[in-house]
Amino acid sequence: MAPLLQSLLAGILFICGTGILMTTNRRWMTGMLALQYMGVFGLVGVSWPLEIAVVKLVAGWMAAAVLFLTYQSLPDSRNRQRLTAGSEGYLFMGFAALLIGLSMYSLLPVALRWFLGATPQQVLGGVWLLGLGTLQLSFSREDIRIITGLLTVVSGFEILYATLEASVLMTGLLAMLNIGLAFLGAYLQMAANLEDRL
């Protein structure tokens, strides 16, 4: 894949990761998560055959779809709750994301020594998602944000791990983990509204 396209994909990953962090709307968040998986697919496809790399895209989109469908079936009151704070919150999160982006970029030469078979764009995309996902995990106590943060962290890891190992079982298990996390997110969103009959 052309380096320019790879750079574009890494850029999309940073924008999506930052967008997920900043948005207060659940549907936008899920949309950006789905877009993020396209970037993951593209960068994993640099190391793997496309027919295996597409598993990442399918699993990621399924995860995003599960989360999106959950919002549709939530009661309106819960769905209208907006995530995170107002304009100061936006500014702070954006600034934190920028700091993560810059610090990860400065770590790129060191990281490239660890991932010998990876291109700089793959490493950058991976560590950006790891950093932004971790930021999301540390900023929020809301279940949906934590699930999205975990999906972002796992996506970053998948890009980096794809440059190290290509195992069918590992690919399948990671795909199942993504979908499992999404189902867990759906359950946690719904749990409070479910009847206590189990």
Binding site: A191, D196, L198
Partner: peptide, 8 residues
Amino acid sequence: LSPPGKEP
């Protein structure tokens, strides 16, 4: 650990 009817 997250039974139905309760927030996690």
